[in-house]
Each structure stands twice: as C-alpha cells, then as structure tokens.
Amino acid sequence: MRWPLIAAKTRNETNDALCAITQAMLRDVRGCPSDELLRGALRDWAFVVPRPESRSMPTDVRLALCWVAGASRPLRPR
C-alpha cells in the first residue's frame, strides 16, 4: 500500500533487500538458474509494482520464477 508513496531510491533498496532475502531462503534444489538470471527475474519481474504482464515475460525468466516457486521453503505458523 505504501509503495506508490515512497521515494524511488527507497523502492530500489526494498527491491534489493527482497531479492537478497528470497535468495537466502531458497532450498538447494536441482536446476537452479544462474545467480544473474535469478536476481534479474526477482528484481525485474517478481518484485515490481505494478506487476508486468506475464505474456511479455521471457521464457528463461518464467522458468527461473517457476524454479523459485518450487525451491521456496513453506511458510507455516508454529
């Protein structure tokens, strides 16, 4: 909700933080994309508001984000 109200530099820093946290929380699963592709997919496609149209997403980015979905640790309350 705050995203449109915060400065561009703050949005950029938040995006970087979300990328780093996400990468740190991923499980070691076979088929991991390169660090460059993974970070680009997260930064330029997953953590963008408003979200870009998925039809324009390159195939390698789509595959990288599918890998992220499968490698993400489940979030369960204790």
Score class of each variant (00 low, 15 high):
Ser34Gln: 07
Asp35Asn: 09
Val48Thr: 04
Pro52Asp: 09
Ala46Met: 06
Val48Asn: 03
Leu37Met: 07
Met57Phe: 10
Ala41Gly: 08
Val48Cys: 02
Val29Lys: 13
Gly40Asn: 10
Phe47Ser: 00
Arg43Glu: 01
Glu53Ser: 13
Arg30Gly: 13
Ala46His: 02
Trp45Leu: 06
Ala41Ser: 15
Ser34Arg: 05
Asp44Gln: 07
Cys32Pro: 04
Pro58Arg: 13
Pro50Val: 13
Val29Glu: 05
Arg39Ser: 07
Pro52Ala: 11
Arg39Asp: 04
Pro50Thr: 11
Arg55Asn: 15
Leu37Trp: 03
Pro52Asn: 10
Val49Cys: 07
Asp35Glu: 11
Asp44Tyr: 10
Val29Cys: 07
Glu53Met: 13
Met57Leu: 14
Met57Lys: 09
Glu36Tyr: 05
Pro50Ile: 11
Arg39Tyr: 00
Leu37Tyr: 04
Arg55Val: 14
Gly40Phe: 06
Pro52Ser: 13
Pro33Cys: 07
Arg30Ala: 15
Glu53Tyr: 11
Ala41Arg: 02
Arg30Met: 14
Glu53Phe: 15
Gly40Ile: 04
Leu37Arg: 03
Arg43His: 08
Leu42Ile: 03
Leu42Lys: 04
Phe47Met: 02
Pro50Met: 11
Arg43Cys: 04
Glu36Gln: 07
Val49His: 09
Val49Ala: 14
Val49Met: 12
Arg51Trp: 10
Ser56Tyr: 14
Arg43Phe: 02
Val29Met: 12
Arg30Gln: 14
Leu42Pro: 00
Phe47Asp: 00
Ser54Tyr: 12
Arg51Tyr: 10
Val29Trp: 09
Pro50Trp: 04
Pro58Glu: 08
Met57His: 09
Glu36Lys: 12
Pro50Leu: 09
Asp44Lys: 10
Pro50Tyr: 09
Leu42Tyr: 00
Asp35Phe: 05
Ser56His: 15
Trp45Asn: 01
Asp44His: 08
Val29Ser: 05
Trp45Pro: 00
Val49Tyr: 06
Val29Pro: 02
Pro58Lys: 15
Pro50Gly: 12
Asp35His: 06
Pro33Lys: 05
Val29His: 05
Trp45Asp: 03
Ala41Met: 04
Gly31Thr: 11
Gly31Asp: 04
Pro58Tyr: 11
Cys32Lys: 15
Val29Leu: 13
Asp35Met: 06
Leu42Trp: 01
Leu38Lys: 05
Gly31Ala: 07
Val29Arg: 10
Glu36Pro: 01
Glu36Phe: 06
Asp44Ser: 08
Ala41Asp: 02
Val48Phe: 03
Asp35Arg: 07
Arg30Lys: 14
Pro58Leu: 14
Asp35Trp: 04
Gly40Leu: 08
Cys32Gln: 09
Phe47Cys: 01
Phe47Tyr: 05
Ala41Thr: 06
Phe47Val: 01
Arg43Lys: 15
Gly31Trp: 08
Ser54Trp: 12
Pro58Gly: 11
Arg39Trp: 03
Arg55Gly: 13
Ser34Trp: 05
Arg43Leu: 03
Ser34Gly: 09
Leu38Thr: 00
Arg51Asp: 12
Leu38Tyr: 02
Pro52Val: 10
Trp45Arg: 04
Val49Ile: 15
Ser54Leu: 15
Leu38Pro: 01
Phe47Leu: 02
Asp44Pro: 00
Pro52Lys: 12
